[in-house]
Amino acid sequence: MVYVEWLRVRNCLRILAIVFGVLFLGAAITRVAVNAQMDQTQAWVAREIVKPGARVSHERLSDGATRTTVDVPSDGDHIVIVDRGWHGKAITISGPGITNDRNANVQIGSVRVHAVRSTPQGGSIEVETDEAVSARVLLLFSSFVALIVGTFLAGPLAKENGNHLEIAWTKPIGRERLALGLFAVDAVGMLAGMAMTVVFLVISTALFELPRIVVDSQTLAVLALSVFMPFAWYALLTAASA
């Protein structure tokens, strides 16, 4: 019976893996598209640098990062690239050549793009690739996924329609022990669902840039809450279906 529940959990997680796989594929395609965009941006920077009169200066900062500043007096563009090596880059581009039709502040993983709406004097774009990602976001999202997994697995005994329940009751194992075994398997299934979600999120964002996950004082409380919520939901459904 517990074996049957394992198979059920396995099937459930398999579907989850397929969904994540599809989403990951989407992320990978996006990554390639972004790459093309980055190539254009790099080409633009390269063109700026070779423009007549462009001033390029390299500077080593006290924390070991390298700051590259490009000034193009001919069209007034200003580029600052701070390369912190493993800790990502911060790029700021400003000048009359930058035209943003609106403000934008988008963060995917650790990559944040901040565009300021252009004025007649020009606009600016800031790209930060080492933005902090709170573990809370990951946990809450995975908690939501575990909730869905729990919905599928809940009420394992109520699911035994017709004679399946009789098959369960005619095993040489007490009914309480059997029920506990089933709940334990489902619990493992939900935790596995959470873990899969975290791994999926980290890998997908790492496609773009390795995320800097920040664990703070509240993380533990959020973790507890994220685990508790799907379990409470599972218990509720199971009790309702019993």
Binding site: M1, V4, L7, N163, I173
Partner: peptide, 30 residues
């Protein structure tokens, strides 16, 4: 129930399971 084998009249098998998995289920239970 280790020594009693009961076969109900119908709906005994889990439709979504393979026959080999049903055998495995019994191997683990008995």
């Amino acid at each position: 129930f280790e020594s009693i084998a009961y076969v109900p009249e119908r709906d005994v098998l889990y439709d979504w399971m393979r026959v080999s998995e049903l055998v495995e289920m019994n191997r683990r239970a008995f």
